[in-house]
Simulated scan of single mutants.
Amino acid sequence: MDSRLTIAGRELAGLRAEKTILLAIGIQLFIAMFSSFLVVGLVSMYDPGALDGAEIEVAAAGDAVDDLERAAAEVPGASVTPYDDGDAARSAFERNAADAVVVATRTESGRVSTVVTAPDATVETTVIVVQLRELLRTYELDERDRRTASLDESPLPLPDRGETSPYFSFTYTVLIPVLVFLPVFISGSLVVDSITEELDQGTMELLRVAPVTLAEIVDGKAAAAVGIAPGQALLWLLLLEANGTSVANVGPILALMTALTTLVVAVAVGIAAVAPDRRAAQLLYSVAVLVLFGGATAMAGGPANAVARLAIDSADATTGVLVIAYAGIAAAAYLGVRRVVTAEGFGR
């Protein structure tokens, strides 16, 4: 055990030379420390609908413009100015007197056709498009209600629109899983770099000469990589808590991510054993992690889903079973890889 701890301490001391890893950790630290500020901008990319309410001026024309004006009264921040025809509306748009153009006309079949013009690739485009979408959706619902009154039989009612906050969903389904799982990937990358560098520089042979076994060398390197991951994740969660984002079930979340870190480290050790070249090993590791987590995410009980449910305290017994299952798989994978590497050694 002393030999393993010595090797683990040596690995941790060498982290200062890993500039890329330190930069990745620094980025995570920045995100966690200022999450309450960053989440506002990040949500605008994750869910542009969160931008509803921004003020836009719409130049409208066509024989259905009156109905469009009534719909605009129901959309906060949207105002419609009618023009005699489409050319006049587009002229106002070109003069920057309007943010967008909507030409709404009724066809012979009774349908309403709309042609929308919005700015092309400007900073305001996303805001304008979101508000236009909300305006046209409201217009469609109003038109549906007006026509429903003339039907002999009422159609099936539309479900009520949800009022969930995009900030809440982004924080618990994207931000927290990202901060929890990034240390997992970093730990695996550390193991790949550590072993391949030892092989490349010939220091692995020096370790073999020392009074330690190959199993102890692998255990020491794995212990260092696995040990730093939950510490990082705990720090990120505490910083989120300080920023006003409450996270439930911190213990089970850390247990899950530790199990996944062990699994990824086992994969990293196996890759380093079969591909001792550093560049090839890192490429194989990246592909393996993408396949592993991509497949797991596609499952209903994937790691990201489990973390989100645990964080909002909506986990059920199935989630607990999944955490235990991940721990069992990780332990079996590591012990299996450790046994093979100990028997076969690292290639050259």
Score class of each variant (00 low, 15 high):
residue 1 M to F: 14
residue 7 I to K: 01
residue 10 R to C: 07
residue 11 E to G: 07
residue 22 L to M: 11
residue 25 I to G: 07
residue 25 I to D: 08
residue 28 Q to C: 12
residue 30 F to M: 12
residue 41 G to F: 06
residue 41 G to K: 11
residue 47 D to N: 13
residue 57 E to A: 14
residue 61 A to S: 13
residue 69 E to R: 15
residue 69 E to M: 14
residue 76 P to N: 06
residue 77 G to A: 00
residue 81 T to R: 15
residue 82 P to D: 00
residue 85 D to V: 03
residue 88 A to M: 08
residue 93 F to V: 09
residue 94 E to Q: 10
residue 95 R to T: 01
residue 101 V to Q: 06
residue 105 T to W: 04
residue 124 E to H: 10
residue 124 E to N: 13
residue 124 E to Y: 09
residue 125 T to N: 04
residue 125 T to Y: 06
residue 126 T to L: 06
residue 126 T to M: 06
residue 128 I to Q: 08
residue 133 R to A: 14
residue 133 R to N: 15
residue 133 R to F: 08
residue 134 E to R: 14
residue 135 L to Q: 04
residue 137 R to L: 15
residue 137 R to A: 12
residue 138 T to M: 02
residue 140 E to I: 07
residue 142 D to M: 15
residue 146 R to C: 09
residue 155 P to N: 03
residue 157 P to H: 12
residue 163 E to M: 06
residue 164 T to M: 08
residue 164 T to Q: 13
residue 166 P to E: 00
residue 166 P to V: 01
residue 175 L to G: 00
residue 176 I to K: 02
residue 176 I to V: 02
residue 178 V to W: 04
residue 178 V to K: 07
residue 181 F to A: 09
residue 183 P to L: 01
residue 188 G to K: 00
residue 188 G to D: 01
residue 191 V to S: 14
residue 195 I to L: 14
residue 199 L to M: 03
residue 200 D to E: 15
residue 202 G to N: 00
residue 204 M to W: 07
residue 204 M to C: 06
residue 205 E to W: 11
residue 205 E to K: 15
residue 208 R to C: 05
residue 214 L to C: 12
residue 215 A to K: 08
residue 222 A to H: 01
residue 227 G to T: 11
residue 228 I to F: 13
residue 232 Q to L: 15
residue 232 Q to G: 08
residue 234 L to K: 09
residue 238 L to V: 11
residue 246 S to E: 13
residue 246 S to H: 10
residue 246 S to G: 05
residue 247 V to Y: 04
residue 248 A to D: 10
residue 252 P to H: 07
residue 255 A to I: 08
residue 258 T to R: 11
residue 265 V to C: 05
residue 265 V to G: 01
residue 268 A to W: 00
residue 273 A to F: 08
residue 273 A to D: 10
residue 276 P to T: 00
residue 289 V to N: 00
residue 290 L to T: 02
residue 290 L to R: 00
residue 291 V to W: 03
residue 296 A to M: 03
residue 298 A to C: 01
residue 299 M to H: 07
residue 300 A to G: 14
residue 302 G to L: 00
residue 318 T to A: 10
residue 319 T to E: 10
residue 320 G to H: 06
residue 320 G to D: 07
residue 321 V to D: 13
residue 324 I to R: 12
residue 330 A to F: 03
residue 330 A to R: 07
residue 333 A to F: 11
residue 338 R to N: 04
residue 339 R to S: 12
residue 340 V to D: 06
residue 345 G to C: 02
